[in-house]
Design a protein around this nucleic acid. Sequence first.
DNA 1: CATTTTCTTGCAAAATCTTCCAAAATCTTC
DNA 2: GAAGATTTTGGAAGATTTTGCAAGAAAATG
Lengths: 261, 261
Amino acid sequence: MQAEERQQRIEEHLQKVEFASLDELAELVDVSVSTIRRDLDALEQTGSVRRTHGGARLAAPRSEEWVFSARDTHQVEEKEAIGAAAAGLIAPGQTVILDAGTTVYHIAKHLTDKKPQIITNSLPVANLLAGENAVEVVVTGGVVYHRLGVLMGPPAVEAFAKIHADVAVMSSSGITLEGVTNSHGLLIEIQREMLRAAQKVLLCMDHTKLGRKSMSPLCGLDEIDVLVTDSRAPAEIVEAFRARGLDVLLAPPSSSSANGK
Amino acid sequence: MQAEERQQRIEEHLQKVEFASLDELAELVDVSVSTIRRDLDALEQTGSVRRTHGGARLAAPRSEEWVFSARDTHQVEEKEAIGAAAAGLIAPGQTVILDAGTTVYHIAKHLTDKKPQIITNSLPVANLLAGENAVEVVVTGGVVYHRLGVLMGPPAVEAFAKIHADVAVMSSSGITLEGVTNSHGLLIEIQREMLRAAQKVLLCMDHTKLGRKSMSPLCGLDEIDVLVTDSRAPAEIVEAFRARGLDVLLAPPSSSSANGK
DNA sequence: CATTTTCTTGCAAAATCTTCCAAAATCTTC
DNA sequence: GAAGATTTTGGAAGATTTTGCAAGAAAATG
């Protein structure tokens, strides 16, 4: 069996079981544990799998960007770094649209100093910022989509249709040279209104989303002003985007963090 | 089993039972108590779990982290009792308007069995019910009022103006024979629309609010269908309301309570 | 205040990781 | 095809981490 085939099988297996031990994987593809170690190292480089002691776990179960959970453990460091970097692009007092999605949630945490006016359709974000009284939060109406905490439906669309904002901070589940795509079709309409309402658009996504294409097309690259991603983004993809005139900001690994074990 | 998988299982278990002893957890994942201790320390670092003597509990039991829960140390038992009693007046599948305010929040907790459709302008309520997928939650738009998590302003008013509901569950800060009053002037307009939209109106308030009058008049007694209060309500006031044709429901002290402490 | 339970700390055994090397497989080049 | 170079694989030795246990400290219980 080829190395690639093996790694693909490992990845597929992890899709099912979420966690697996080295022995389990070694038996699955019938090679030694040493080889499994090397395969997992390779898979970790691409970001799809994370090593643990004695085994490995899936880096991103499901199409997680929209599955909101306070204890989201996937690419947390990257998202934190993206959050800090993206917040640096917001000027104090600006009117900011915040999309739903876990990456944007991390950005929201860094915005309190800027005393912004926030408009959002994300319950978790509204929740997070509602306690800060330096921040004015406007929530769109809509039906709550279970698990995600996103407000959807006509009221949400209309709310964005009526307003104007300085910046929109958005995320999606894929971007290629052909444009930006999102896995969640029902959100597309709302996101289009966000794009329209904002003067400047920041698209924030961790490196695993680069080069990926998902179900529904959202917009072209020309509608994005800055793509904010983390420093593990493959250099050639970043270059390709830059060549197309897209401004790409690579968030440096969190040096600010103090919680490093 | 890997450390990470173990910790995830512990967390999931705590999601269900809220509290667990060390022995219970040790048996669940089949390791020694020492290891459980270390796992819990790790989980506590991430903030998802809180250690106690002899066990652990969920760090954030639901999202009670709302600011208002801090001031909500008053008449909690009464509010719980009112919550259970008022929930009994709601039929399965009904469309229910939920007001903001701590008393109504307690009612929301008892509604999940009824599979209702909820319309609310309260972020804490939306938050609480967003996780339940038997419940459909519609949120009005609006500006978040700090501390309370209420959505206010024209979008909130309009949202209620456009709809119709079977029941409105409301609260206010005072009721006398002259009518219902509320201390928060900005909410009055929204509450008037709730009254108008609903076919049946439940007014829920603990006994300390009876006979009190506060700043802004909201409506007359004839617009209320049932007043739900706790059993410590003064008998003569209750009689007076009943004499005026108002239906008064006295919630019995919570016999159901098992969460001592 | 005595008893029981739980917590901390230190340590040794077990499991796992890293690094290195030789055998096997694959690829070049002729 | 064959000889040599390169890559991949499996395994072993030593370093590192994790685990379970035990003794004394601290806390809860009545």
